[in-house]
């Protein structure tokens, strides 16, 4: 059976595990390097990227995560997860951990504080029905390299992108019952 790791240091990781279970896949909570053994894909959930950065270091997960991602393991980053995967982060902390170098520039909390958090219907490439997406103090993708595939936008800003083995969303597919994006990710695992 397919086993998908979900980084479980902090944030909405249980929601991702529940979505995976609803699709008949085992979700493995990742808190230590050994938890990465034998997984077919990795989800980096939403949460606070500053706290996750610190905990990745504390739990000695930074290098092992970088290695599996560089090695081609399918990865799905949502919100804070997208920040961890980006090559360039604006309004971040200087000690913020980077787990990959997806050629995008993201601005932390780029849409503003909680009052500006929102829901919107997205048109996603390859999907016929709109996807209701929840954005919470979301990162804003300000630049994308032409090699990055943009799968959905909000007011022309990319919010769902694919690059090599990485799928990344500025929003939270784990907060809605719509499992289509998890299914899209699992096709690659």
């Amino acid at each position: 059976m397919t086993r998908i790791g979900v980084l479980a240091l902090q944030g909405a990781f249980r929601r991702h595990v529940e979505a995976l279970e609803a699709l008949g896949v085992t979700g493995v909570e990742v808190r230590a390097p050994a938890d990465l053994d034998g997984i077919d894909g990795l989800i980096l959930p939403g949460g606070e990227s500053t706290a996750m950065s610190l905990l990745l270091g504390a739990n000695e997960l930074t290098e092992p995560c970088r290695d599996v991602i560089a090695g081609g393991l399918p990865v799905f980053g949502t919100c804070a997860g997208m920040i961890l995967l980006a090559e360039k982060v604006l309004d971040g902390r200087s000690d913020q951990v980077q787990l990959s170098d997806v050629p995008i520039t993201v601005r932390r909390n780029g849409y503003g504080r909680q009052l500006a958090s929102f829901e919107a219907d997205l048109e996603i490439a390859g999907e016929t029905e709109p996807f209701r997406a929840v954005f919470i103090r979301a990162p804003k993708v300000e630049q994308v390299d032409p090699a990055v595939e943009v799968l959905a936008t909000v007011d022309d800003d990319p919010v769902l992108i694919r690059y090599r083995n990485v799928l990344a969303a500025a929003f939270h597919p784990e907060l809605t019952p719509d499992l289509r994006l998890h299914r899209v990710f699992l096709l690659e695992c």
């Binding site: 479980a8 240091l9 902090q10 944030g11 909405a12 990781f13 249980r14 929601r15 939403g46 949460g47 606070e48 706290a51 919100c79 804070a80 909680q114 958090s117 929102f118 829901e119 929840v134 954005f135 919470i136 103090r137 939270h172 907060l175």
Partner: peptide, 12 residues
């Protein structure tokens, strides 16, 4: 959206 931010603080 309102409960969503609390979801993001879990485990913290």
């Amino acid at each position: 959206v309102k409960r969503g931010l609390a979801e993001m603080l879990k485990g913290g």
